[in-house]
Amino acid sequence: MKNKLLLLLSLLMLIVLGFFAHQNIAQSSDKEAKLQNSRMAPIIFVPGSSATINRFDDLFKELNASGPVHSILKVQVNKNNQLEFHGKLNPQDRQPFIVVGFQDNDDGYSNIKRQTKWLNTALSALQNRYHFRHFSAVGHSNGGLVWTNYLEQDYDSSSFNIATLMTLGTPFNFSETSLQRRTEMLNDLIASNNHLPSNLDMYSVAGTEDYTDDGIVPVESVLAGKYIYQNKVRSYTQITVSGDNAEHSSLPENPEVVNLIQTKVIHPDKKLIQK
């Protein structure tokens, strides 16, 4: 009698579990199918501290003027995790530009950690809306730190595939001018660099006004990125731009940087063919 009851209860449990598991699989496979069949691979930009979602407007004008027009969507993540969407993506656009900015855009390591969580929220919402898996990323200044922290802490390779990351004047060691003095953030980023996606192509661009810094960020701090990325991702390239428009806040509009974004982020395959 006890055995029969045990078997009956087990059967009931299996039926209930089977029903809910079937629903779960149906939902996830539906999402997977949309991701699988999506051809969209946006380029997602994150501005630095104190900057708004309009930070890259001039860069987008430059990029859209010299090639096919990319639609632009701007997303602001508010402090309460709510998302504000500005602009619209063209469904036919395979490489739209998306800017993810934060209402709380203060400087500092603790805020970078918070912004990382907000970026994660925004990316999940964007994926649910537009069903993309592949993307590339650009981060200006602290935006590069947010991307790095995201890739180490929250990036899930079963949901996303990031092809290229380009950071512009990103202070991996904050304002330290010596690589011997590592900040807490740099130590943390180095400690977790095993989580970085191994198939990532990473470009770190530094600007120099006077051989030492770009007016705000010391070159050594940008160079500290090698301790995080080198030998952990597929390729790590350090590039230094100088001359006019090489100061920190002008880096996104620097003609060399615009060219780098076009060849390394937007059309990396074309560049290979030209070679």
Binding site: L14, L17, G18, A21, N24, I25
Partner: peptide, 9 residues
């Protein structure tokens, strides 16, 4: 399948 689901299902 979700982790932990009985293999018989």
């Amino acid at each position: 399948a979700p982790d932990g689901l009985p293999n018989i299902l």
